[in-house]
Design a protein around this nucleic acid. Structure first.
Lengths: 136, 136
DNA sequence: GTAAAGCCCGTACCGTACTACGGAGTCAAG
DNA sequence: CTTGACTCCGTAGTACGGTACGGGCTTTAC
């Protein structure tokens, strides 16, 4: 069976070497076996695991959430429904974030439309609107 | 002219007392004058400034960006256009974040649709899809 | 055989934005 | 005058997710 050094798994999974060590410390990947020299010896599954972590992170899960997801997987008492529930909570989180960002964007667009771009900052409607209320 | 203690400005601007001290250390508000006792003595403008910071943060600016915005304001050579440019960059940032979140959401929705919610985690399409590729 | 690249470890540090702590001095109300 | 709330200060801690350092061993390639 093919094994990998830490540098190889890192390259394969497109993460940093230090990140792999960090994930090991944090319990996101199991402690690998070692060569006589002390060098870590990983197998293919760790590459998959690291990709899992990277992709879940890209989907907006935090490392703690990912850890829970992984422990669910190991727990024979938990069902697929648990995982689905968590994914649905995550979808709701993401929707909330999107709404907040859209609110921010609308406010900024409104401000930039009010601003000619000419004139001194002292008359900038963007700064005025933010710093204002007490200034007029 | 009415002056404020740190607790009063904090309440007025709806931030914490420690946050005001923190902003002072970070140079986001100027060093206030002091009473004989050493107590900080703020004026109304600081309340506005603190509100400015809070609102700009709500619009997605970081403290560093806010600091820049404030320095623009003080620089007589900078025009309203500088501020507008920054706001537009921020709008583009926000749009990018929204797109990323929408990508995340689409991926998660797709996965939850594929998942019945029944069955063991070993057959969960969500986990499989994430940890997969090397497992089949 | 040698040199470069890779790996070992613990620890410290990065940025972001605060929040908490503790002991001492001060202020305002009653 | 007392009491309780407020303020002072510097320092440390929080959460998040890593990133960097540095001295010393191991492996690989030539």
């Amino acid at each position: 069976m093919k094994t990998f050094t830490i540098g190889q798994v890192a390259r394969e999974a497109r993460v940093g070497v230090e990140t792999v060590r960090f994930y090991e410390r944090e319990g996101l990947i199991e402690e690998p076996s070692r060569r006589a020299s002390g060098y870590r010896q990983f197998d293919e599954a760790v590459v998959d695991r690291l990709r899992f972590i990277r992709e879940a992170k890209e989907l907006g899960f935090t490392l703690n959430e990912i850890k829970e997801l992984l422990s669910l997987k190991l727990d024979p008492a938990s069902s697929c429904g648990n995982v689905k529930d968590r994914a649905e909570v995550k979808i709701a989180d993401i929707e909330e974030k999107i709404r907040t960002l859209q609110r921010m964007k609308r406010a900024l667009v409104k401000l930039t439309k009010a601003c000619s771009g000419d004139g001194p900052t002292s008359e900038c409607p963007i700064l005025e609107s933010l710093d204002g209320r007490g200034k007029q």
